[in-house]
């Protein structure tokens, strides 16, 4: 078997994943903390004020990375949901369901900071334009996935039902992303572009990019911490889980 495929199979085994995640976690938390500290210092202190909004523009260092994370985590959740539905891999069910609350939190932060910025800049806390509405729908999709997962008794059936909802909801992602292009919205278009030059000065851009990477680490760290606990709970009848529980007990 191809070594990459072999590694993938190994990763799918709960005890192997549990140990690997345990080793990675301190690094991930550390990188996330350093990255967020550096990004926030760069964004809130070093970056020059905007010519129109002066210091109020600095909320983008929270708002924009959260918005990117809300889409990224949903995609991650849906991909894992797809794997869980087709191949019934236990680990994918766990990862998809552990990602949902983290994604919901980022979506909420994105909506809340946008609202705080919108009041002084636009003149309103909220308006029903396409970008704001589709992002709110994204939050409700996350809440729906979390709710459905907890409404069904059997953990594995619950995960598959919720994964199905997550998979259907993926049609909202392009709508959120392209809403500012397709319709006339109050929300401005994209500033940072993957293709072509970004519409932001480089001195303002670098802390934003650091924050984007740091939030990925924060997500990975949070996800793995949650997934480890869920795995242990789901496999509590198995030998490997008992051994870990015993070891924890004796060391405590």
């Amino acid at each position: 078997m191809n070594p990459l495929v072999l590694w993938f199979h190994k990763l799918g085994s709960p005890p192997y994943f549990y140990r690997l995640a345990g080793r990675l976690l301190p690094w991930l938390w550390g990188l996330a903390a350093i990255g967020i500290a550096a990004g926030l210092y760069g964004g809130l202190v070093l970056a020059p004020p905007d010519y129109q909004q002066s210091d109020a523009f600095r909320i983008i260092y929270i708002h924009v990375p959260s918005a990117w994370m809300s889409l990224f985590i949903y995609f991650f959740m849906a991909v894992n949901g797809f794997i869980a539905l087709v191949w019934r891999i236990k680990l994918s069910e766990i990862l998809a369901m552990a990602a949902a609350p983290v994604g919901a939190a980022f979506t909420f932060i994105c909506l809340a900071t946008g609202s705080l910025w919108g009041k002084p800049m636009w003149g309103t806390w909220w308006t029903w334009d396409a970008r704001l509405t589709s992002e709110l729908v994204l939050l409700f999709l996350y809440l729906g996935v979390i709710g459905l997962y907890h409404a069904i008794e059997d953990r594995r059936q619950a995960a598959r039902a919720a994964a199905f909802l997550a998979l259907i909801g993926i049609v909202n992602l392009p709508i959120v992303h392209f809403s500012v292009k397709w319709w006339n919205t109050l929300h401005q278009g994209s500033t940072v572009k993957l293709f072509g030059p970004s519409l932001i000065d480089s001195r303002m851009l670098w802390p934003l990019l650091i924050m984007a990477v740091a939030t990925k680490f924060a997500f990975a760290a949070s996800l793995l911490s949650r997934a480890r606990v869920d795995l242990l709970e789901l496999e509590s009848g198995k030998d490997w889980a008992r051994q870990i529980a015993l070891a924890e007990e004796t060391s405590a």
Binding site: Y51, W122, G123, Q188, D201, M204
Partner: peptide, 18 residues
């Protein structure tokens, strides 16, 4: 009854603008 300002997608430091 309500006037909202639309912000564009450009971010320019004040010194550069000056």
């Amino acid at each position: 009854t309500e006037v909202l300002a639309k912000h564009d997608e450009n971010y320019v430091p004040r010194d550069v603008k000056e």
